[in-house]
Computed example of a mutant assay.
Amino acid sequence: MRNKRTLFMVEVAIFAALATLLDFIPIFKMPQGGSVSLAMIPVFLIAFRWGLKGGLLTGFLYGVFQIIVGQAYILTPLQAFIEYGLAFTALGLAGIFASTVKQSLINHNTKKFFTYVSLAILLGSALRFFAHVVAGVVFFAEYTDAENIWLYSLGYNASYMVPAAIISALGLGYLFKKQPRIILNDQEQASYRAAARPSEQIN
């Protein structure tokens, strides 16, 4: 039990740090904050591997690390809490679907597997997106000449959140399907092999 807890904490810390590192190498960076990157993938991976607790903690640490390394754009403490506390922690809610994703993978139900991976990432991404939209309306309205700040904030945040979510869903879905051991423990891997058709047996 102690070894499992230690492994959990180590993996959470490492993957939160990896998410922060990936944020330094964006595919595309927005002029007023936000970027299309692979940074959400480590958070979602831990959420699927360890469930809700792991996902929430990894997301929270990712937000904290953003502030520590100077990646955060902070106007007020409340804005920082919303955009780097709530928003990044919300990504971990993808862990709600962890058991369903694992079971569909074990049962070789490809359609269900990809559906729930996508739904999980959509949930986490949508909640992060909502937090950024609200923060944009409340704290950044004075920095834009937009007539409708809600539409501006929705469009601005969607421009990087939607591509990042799609990249995360496609990347993790493919990765887990090809390497199920990434999210399955030893017992689950045994069940996966037992349920496999002869042509799907893994080494």
Rank of each mutant, 00 (worst) to 15 (best):
Y73L: 15
T89E: 06
M40A: 15
G63D: 04
L75H: 14
I41L: 13
Q66C: 15
G63P: 04
P77M: 06
Y73P: 13
I82Q: 13
G70E: 02
I46R: 00
G95S: 10
F44T: 03
A94G: 13
F48C: 06
F65S: 01
T58H: 03
P77W: 01
F81E: 02
I46G: 00
L45N: 04
L56I: 14
T58Q: 06
A98V: 05
L91V: 11
F81S: 09
S99K: 14
F60N: 04
S99H: 12
I82F: 11
F65D: 04
L93S: 02
A72Q: 09
F60R: 05
L56N: 03
L61E: 00
I46P: 04
T58W: 10
G95P: 08
I68T: 00
T58F: 04
V64K: 11
F97S: 01
F88T: 14
F88G: 10
M40G: 12
I67E: 05
G59K: 02
K53N: 12
A87T: 11
G55I: 02
E83N: 14
I46H: 03
W50D: 15
F88C: 12
G85H: 05
T58E: 05
E83V: 13
G63Q: 11
W50N: 09
F60T: 09
L52F: 03
G54S: 04
Y84I: 10
I68S: 05
V43Q: 05
G63Y: 01
F65E: 04
A80K: 07
S99I: 15
A90C: 13
A98T: 04
L45M: 12
A47L: 04
F88N: 14
A87Y: 07
A87D: 12
Y62Q: 10
G63S: 07
W50P: 09
Y73D: 12
E83C: 13
A80I: 07
F60L: 14
I67V: 13
G55T: 01
A94S: 15
L52S: 03
Q71H: 12
G85I: 00
I74T: 05
V43C: 06
L45Q: 08
Q79G: 11
F48K: 01
I82P: 09
L57C: 03
W50L: 15
Q79D: 06
L56Y: 01
R49P: 04
L86H: 11
G70T: 05
G59Q: 02
T76H: 06
A98P: 03
R49S: 06
L45E: 08
L57E: 01
V43S: 10
G59E: 01
L91Y: 09
L75P: 10
I46V: 09
Q79W: 06
A98L: 01
A47W: 05
A47S: 13
I96Q: 09
V69L: 08
V43E: 07
Y84S: 10
L78G: 11
W50C: 12
G95R: 00
R49G: 02
L78W: 10
W50H: 15
L57V: 00
L57A: 05
Y73W: 15
Y62H: 13
A47E: 02
T76Y: 03
V64A: 08
S99E: 11
P42G: 07
G55F: 00
